[in-house]
Nucleic acid binder design. Sequence first.
DNA 1: GTGAAAGCGCTAACAC
DNA 2: GTGTTAGCGCTTTCAC
Lengths: 339, 339
Amino acid sequence: MTSPAVPAPRTQVTRKDVARYAGVSTAVVSYVVNGGPKKVAPATEAKVQDAIRLLGYRPNAAARALKLGSTETIGLIIPDNSNPFFSLLAHAVEDAAAELGFALFLTNSDGNLAKERRNIRNLAARQVDGVVLASVLLDPDLTDLEAAEIPSVLLSHSERSAGFTTVGVDLAEGARKAVEHLVWHGHTNIGLAMGTTTGNEGDAREDGWLQALKDAGLAEGPIARSEFTRVGGYAAGQRLLASANRPTAIFASSDMQAIGILRALHEAGLSVPGDMALASFDGAVEAEYSWPPLTTVEQPVRDMAEAAVRALVGADRGEPARHRVFPTRLLVRQSCGCG
Amino acid sequence: MTSPAVPAPRTQVTRKDVARYAGVSTAVVSYVVNGGPKKVAPATEAKVQDAIRLLGYRPNAAARALKLGSTETIGLIIPDNSNPFFSLLAHAVEDAAAELGFALFLTNSDGNLAKERRNIRNLAARQVDGVVLASVLLDPDLTDLEAAEIPSVLLSHSERSAGFTTVGVDLAEGARKAVEHLVWHGHTNIGLAMGTTTGNEGDAREDGWLQALKDAGLAEGPIARSEFTRVGGYAAGQRLLASANRPTAIFASSDMQAIGILRALHEAGLSVPGDMALASFDGAVEAEYSWPPLTTVEQPVRDMAEAAVRALVGADRGEPARHRVFPTRLLVRQSCGCG
DNA sequence: GTGAAAGCGCTAACAC
DNA sequence: GTGTTAGCGCTTTCAC
């Protein structure tokens, strides 16, 4: 069914209609609908409920929002909903929000700073009660939100950021765990496929990789930088294979990159983990179904999403800004040489 | 930044403040902000713009929505945003909506009928201007939307449905193409891994598979039914392998199932396409990065999303309900035996 | 070209 | 327990 070419005459049933039909005042209807703030006699309540049902009354959220100054809505900004990590994150945020009666505006920034800013502005204009931002930057511009006094939290953000509530994982520690595992397998030349960020900022996964190497007394392996995507990983994989000191193992900063590397490896006729071991980061389901299944550092996406929403509009609302770090877990599968 | 424990005193700058500051009436501010419906003298306009900038004025969307009866918002209901097919669809719908100045409420039904209905109701209460529904059912219950006179379109819907605008692909034809290709490779025993729907309704992909077999004078191959997921595909794959008349090729009704089948095949030490050829449906990016890359029937997701949004709130709004079928394309890769 | 004012549907303080 | 009513911020008709 599509909308009529000419807008139909406003046929909306209002609170007033219900009141008239039930023979009460509009206030009473409000009390019934909202369960307060005043008590209503059971008999009256029944009359009102009947009227509501009969008339098919549905409260107008816009009017309510105008009056209350709250839309029961939050906004989410992610780089790319078609990236498995973010789509899972979005799903989890939606669940957490719905749990609290909040609806979720989904916006993609496509790794584009201007678009991210536009989305922030747009959400602010729509009077959302909060925004969850998985930014392309370490230090996003939140002035529009601040001006509108809209709380925000930085999700999938691994650095403490003064004055902001942030939730993420310890990237360095996660990366270190994965690389240490590769070291444990006996590898002495471990390469890094590192994702690049829009802001060209450093990434702690690189530090973790380096630290693990140092701790093991190993030389720094080759690095290939590329996008946090399958295509990016594919290119990085090819470069790593062609490098003068070809590694025997690779740590990839995301599962998507590892998937790309896997393709490069397969095309080169190399076996994994025999000719090249692999470990990555994120814990996407896709990594469990690659061949071989990827050993990866899992991020507790649902927990992080819940924490973000709770800090924004749930129980933790109003608590002082802080950096919440969630634990990662090394999912040991076969690409590393286990099993 | 989190919200203050005690709601700050409403500090919002309103149209009235701007008017006072600029020394004009509130009507003029409206004219300037909306570029109409009346003309404003350039000098006045400048004064108003200055005031807006200085005061940091931002229009209140809720008030506007209340007045206009339109929220410039659409709702999307999909089964699962962490399924690559739907996450891409959601991204595309968001893009199409944003293009038209509409924001997108994302909701997941998790393949759950009750949840789908709850989401519909919730979106209706929020006065969305339209809803795009990728239902778990062939014949979803849209009464809440109809009662609220909210237009809707059924997306990723392959059956004509009287009175509804629907957009989808010809599943039977797509499946037929894939199976015909498998036949062309010389296979005579082609199994089917068929996804099951919540409503237990038939799926035209099955018809397409059967038709291709019949047209080629082939006997009906074995069928394994399971969920439209990786896990489902994995189980289906195992069953197909164990079946009395094990096929030499499988057509899977979704890429996710094929990914699962691939795992079952690998675990069984079978080579693809050597020991078992494979083709599937959807055209997810993940299918391009599996090993071997999957031959799959691509759905034009972006085109479908755009068509849905356009029919809802864009140029095609108000056109009579119709069933829009988009063409699929066989993406020939290696799992079928090519290359 | 500009302004005054009605009213969108709702909540809740206040009066009874 | 129930009713009256004043706005929330905005758009737009109608008068000037």
